[in-house]
């Protein structure tokens, strides 16, 4: 029997098969870092099976690279399996553990989503640092508590880290959109985070680049517009440090303490 792992997220799942005999260490590492996504759950979709190749050598850098690539492949597979079904935003999210209301923060890659997820996840329930799947009709969110890809000083590869190792809080069982925020991190920003309401079309223009498979919907623009109408106004948040946003999150989705 081929060693395998089933990863759940975004209301879908994907089977990872480790066919190579040298993959045992990789399987153990993947099992560890994907800890929050291994709990069996009923999913509306199933992604194509991924065949995982072991690292090219036994050095840590190669192993980190393989795990990082695996995260990217899993995310892409899960997203693709939900094309045209759920609205998928390139966004992180945390939830109020009591109410399930989520703060969804959309931003391009490399602009602070993981750092913010890691920080807010100490206080709020960790939902995802990468992709959020939203039911456009109800606002329900399907979590994806994937490993966080953390930068290591002096290393090219990021380190895939389990949210359990970071002691991030668990999200509530039922999640829904509380508020959507478009992040703008500015190193020179002074003072408290600046929050500005976006007009609906401006919100759409800000969010469209952060959607995946939006064209798979019959009415892509109206689908996004419905979500904004139900949970808006969307806010643009200009900030400097992730730690500045804890109070903002509490104000928007409720203080979990």
């Amino acid at each position: 029997m081929v060693p395998s792992l089933r990863v759940h997220g975004l209301d879908s799942s994907v089977e990872l098969r480790f066919t190579d005999p040298d993959s045992r260490t990789l399987l153990e590492a993947a099992t560890h870092v994907w800890s929050r996504c291994l709990i069996p759950a009923t999913s509306s979709r199933q992604a194509e099976t991924l065949h995982v190749q072991p690292p090219s050598d036994s050095f840590d850098a190669a192993r980190r690279h393989t795990l990082q690539r695996l995260t990217q492949d899993v995310t892409e597979s899960l997203i693709t399996s939900q094309a045209g079904h759920w609205l998928m935003l390139h966004a992180g999210a945390v939830s109020n553990p009591a109410t399930g209301d989520c703060l969804v923060f959309a931003a391009p890659g490399g602009t602070g989503k993981t750092t913010l997820s890691r920080h807010l996840g100490q206080r709020f329930g960790y939902v995802s640092d990468e992709t959020v799947a939203i039911d456009p009709a109800s606002g329900r969110i399907h979590p994806y508590p994937k490993p966080l890809s953390l930068r290591i000083p002096g290393q090219a590869e990021k380190s895939e880290t389990s949210p359990d190792d970071l002691e991030l809080r668990h999200a509530a069982a039922e999640l829904r959109v509380g508020r959507i925020v478009v992040l703008r991190r500015e190193p020179d920003h002074v003072g408290a985070p600046d929050l500005a309401e976006l007009a609906p079309l401006d919100a759409m223009a800000a969010l469209l680049p952060e959607t995946s498979w939006i064209r798979a919907f019959d009415e892509p623009l109206r689908t996004l517009r419905r979500v904004i109408a139900a949970h808006g106004p969307v806010l643009r948040c200009t900030y400097r440090e992730a730690s500045d946003l804890s109070a903002v999150a509490a104000a928007l989705i409720g203080d979990p303490s």
Binding site: P200, L201, D202, M204, A205, L208, I214, R215, E219, P220, L221, R222, R225
Partner: peptide, 21 residues
């Protein structure tokens, strides 16, 4: 366009490779 949303006299047009406000 693949899709066009007009609202309040303004619009977003969606094309296969881009959108225009």
């Amino acid at each position: 366009p693949d899709d066009l949303l007009v609202e309040g006299g303004e619009a977003i047009a969606l094309y296969p490779d881009r959108f225009v406000r």
